[in-house]
Design a protein around this nucleic acid. Structure first.
Length: 376
RNA sequence: GGGGGUGCGCUACAGUUGGAGAGGUAGGUUGGACUGUAAAUCCAAUGUUUCGGCUGAGUAGGUUCGAAUCCUACCACCCCCA
């Protein structure tokens, strides 16, 4: 994998770059739609490319391992072939499930014992096994197996967890180096910075991760409920230490404003379930602000959902119609809303990239920040 | 025309076999939440109020210390017979 910085913003640490993976180029900053189970919920692959302009999507090791199972994916020839998507894919290692399935898992030095949310059966993920599965899934970028700590998190626990994540990283790297890709193209392993909301831990972790000299670095353990100031503060601490010439991936972020602020702090790649999940729950993101489509006030608003949207469905259908679809639980409502939000998210980062190249990112960010955060 | 059954809150369904309940469940409605997806999910409110109460189990009476419950009449709906 190769990363080239094309332009930098004079007033912030934002950069515009381009990452080359086995399945194509990713222009950064970039947002990755989340496709946990081999699909970005409600969105067809053709819409991902033709409408949303997604250049990379995310899959999840834990979910794909449970269903359909790695055997099926292997026999399909890898996840790309299985889902008919020939652009880049990144897989999360299952580290987030260590956090989100708390109560259904046990963490030990050796690894994590999960109870399946599908049928309650027990499964064990070690760092080595997480790499093996991700080799079989065949994503272009694969993530180290980590523990995503909750918020709030006591210092002692955060420190112990961070060190374990570091030890797990060594095991991931070793396994990665002693195995080969299954499908004839290179995969890239990304380590993950942890350290909760503690500056010294974040510094320590970022330094450790930087020393590994990996082609891409990720920041985890944020956007788990901490105040935005902490999210930005920790991100800044970390981006100051991670190598400048390698892409930085801020995992699980975030709201449109989180993304713009983080771009200003030197983040290149994002993923988040918010645009897709919230779309299904009736929340729309636009340049003019946030719309709760379920609110009564849209019931007789026959104006376009968003006349400025790059998604034809948002220009062609009215708010009243979309509200109706969502209120009655029609699938098309979730499709139109998901297509809208993801199109907006990609337009947001693509515009940020243009503004960085034009040298006017910071002014532009300050200007749009006011409007995108308001509730309509 | 005769016989039987059932009637409460926005709706439905349960339940209440003389000691009340502005109760249950589901749905609807109206808000809210959601950040590397256990999520087409979850939470709250939903008679009225000056927050102390007030009104309330189809309507009107009656029996009773006390009635959603028992009695009478009427009304509505459902079923059966003609």
């Amino acid at each position: 994998m190769n990363f080239e910085i094309k332009a930098t913003d004079p007033k912030s640490k934002a950069r515009a770059g381009s990452m080359t993976t086995a399945h194509g180029v990713i222009q950064t900053p970039k947002f990755m739609p989340v496709g946990t189970q081999g699909t970005v919920k409600t969105i067809h692959q053709k819409e991902l490319t033709d409408v949303i302009d997604a250049e990379i999507i995310l899959g999840n090791t834990y979910h794909l391992y449970l269903r359909p199972g790695t055997d099926i994916i292997k026999r399909a020839g890898g996840l790309h072939k299985f889902i008919n998507w020939d652009k880049p894919i990144l897989t999360d290692s299952g580290g987030y499930q260590v956090y989100s399935l708390s109560g259904m898992r046990k963490i030990k030095e050796e690894g994590v014992k999960f109870q399946s949310h599908v049928d309650g059966s027990y499964h064990f993920f070690s760092p080595e096994y997480a790499i093996d599965i991700q080799r079989e899934i065949g994503a272009d970028i694969i993530m180290a197996f980590d523990e995503c700590t909750p918020y709030p998190c006591e210092y002692k626990y955060a420190k112990r967890s961070m060190h374990m994540t570091h030890r797990w990283l060594t095991r991931c790297i070793n396994r990665f180096n002693e195995t080969d890709p299954h499908y004839g193209y290179q995969q890239t392993l990304s380590p993950i910075v942890q350290g909760s909301t503690y500056k010294d831990l974040r510094e320590q972790s970022a330094t450790y991760i930087a020393e590994q000299n990996m082609p891409i670095n990720a920041i985890g353990g944020l956007s788990v409920g901490e105040p935005h100031e902490d999210m930005y503060g920790m991100t800044e601490v970390v981006t100051n230490i991670l190598p400048w010439d390698k892409p930085r991936y801020l995992m699980g972020v975030g709201l449109p404003e989180n993304i713009l602020e983080s771009i200003a702090l030197g983040i290149d790649i994002f993923d988040c379930v918010l645009p897709s999940r919230n779309a299904r729950h009736g929340i729309l993101y636009t340049w003019d602000g946030v719309i709760n489509m379920k609110n009564l006030k849209w019931a007789d608003d026959f104006s376009p959902i968003d006349s400025k949207s790059l998604a034809h469905t948002s220009r062609d259908h009215s708010k009243a119609y979309l509200r109706h679809l969502i209120k009655v639980g029609e699938i098309l409502g979730m499709q139109i809303a998901s297509l809208h939000n993801l199109t907006f998210y990609l337009e947001l980062v693509n515009t940020a990239r243009e503004k960085i190249i034009a040298g006017e990112f910071s002014q532009w960010k300050d200007q749009v920040m006011k409007t995108i955060t308001q509730r309509l």
